[in-house]
Write a protein that binds this DNA or RNA. Structure first.
Lengths: 109, 109
DNA sequence: AGCATTCATCGTAATATTGCAATATATAAA
DNA sequence: TTTATATATTGCAATATTACGATGAATGCT
C-alpha cells in the first residue's frame, strides 16, 4: 500500500530507516558532497551544479533539512545552505553504531 | 515522475544512494539486526519475529539480497538467511568513507 | 511604487514502494 | 504419488516519490 507499518518497529529502527531514506537519492548525496567541498553555497548554485530544475532541488533540500543534516540561512534574496555539523556527527554515529556490530561467520550459508 | 535521473550523477553517488535505499525501511533494518543477533535464521522465523505477512518479508529479503548484504541458502523446504560478511564490510566502508569527510564550520549559517 | 531576482510551494503526471491475498514452486514426508 | 510445509512470485490497491511548470512570497534595487 506504499505505507510503512512504523508502529511494529522500534524507535531506533524507524529513525535509522528515516536517515537512510534521506540519503537514498543521488541528488541528495550530490548536494551533501557539494556542501562538504564548498562548505557553503546558495540554492541557485546547487541548481546549476546538480542539473535538476529549481523546484526539484528545493524539494530535495527540504528532505535533507527534515533530518537536520543541512540548514539554510536567508541572505537577501538567496538562501545559504550548509551542513549542520552537530547533526552530521550524530547521523554519522548512528550509521557507525549500526555497522559496528560484528558479523559472525555464518553456520549454514 | 517517481523516476530518478541517474544519468546525471556519478557512479559512486548512485551506488551510495542505492545502498541507503536498501536500508531505508525499518523492516529491513529489523531483518539485518535480527540476523546480526541470531547469526542465521530461516525466512519463517523472520515472518514471526517481524510481524509482517510472508510475501512482504520475502520482498524485503529480495531488496536486501539485491545489494548483497544478505544471502540465502536453501535447506530442504526452508531458506537459511545470513549476513554476507564480505559485503557487509564493503557497505560499511562505503558509509564510513562518506561520513569521514570533515565538516568545516559554516561561514554564513 | 514598480520591477527583477531568488527561492518555496502548489498542482500534476509518471513511476516506485509497501503490503497482502492468491497462487506457483520446490522439497520432504507419508 | 499424494500431501504437507516453506518460500517465491504474481496481481492489485493504496500511498509515496520524483520531476517540473506555474505561481507565490520575500527581498533588493531603481
Amino acid at each position: 500500500m506504499g505505507i510503512t507499518k512504523s508502529e511494529i518497529f522500534t524507535e531506533k529502527q524507524n529513525q535509522l530507516a528515516q536517515l537512510a531514506k534521506a540519503l537514498a537519492h543521488p541528488a541528495r548525496i550530490a548536494i551533501i558532497e557539494h556542501l562538504l567541498k564548498i562548505n557553503t553555497c546558495i540554492c541557485g548554485d546547487l541548481v546549476s551544479v546538480i542539473g535538476l530544475a529549481q523546484p526539484t532541488i528545493s524539494q530535495h533540500l527540504k528532505e535533507l533539512k527534515k533530518i537536520g543534516i543541512i540548514q539554510g540561512q536567508v541572505e537577501g534574496t538567496s538562501v545559504c545552505y550548509c551542513i549542520n555539523t552537530e547533526k552530521w556527527k550524530e547521523i554519522s554515529l548512528a550509521f557507525e553504531t549500526f555497522f559496528s556490530k560484528d558479523t559472525n561467520p555464518p553456520s549454514c550459508c
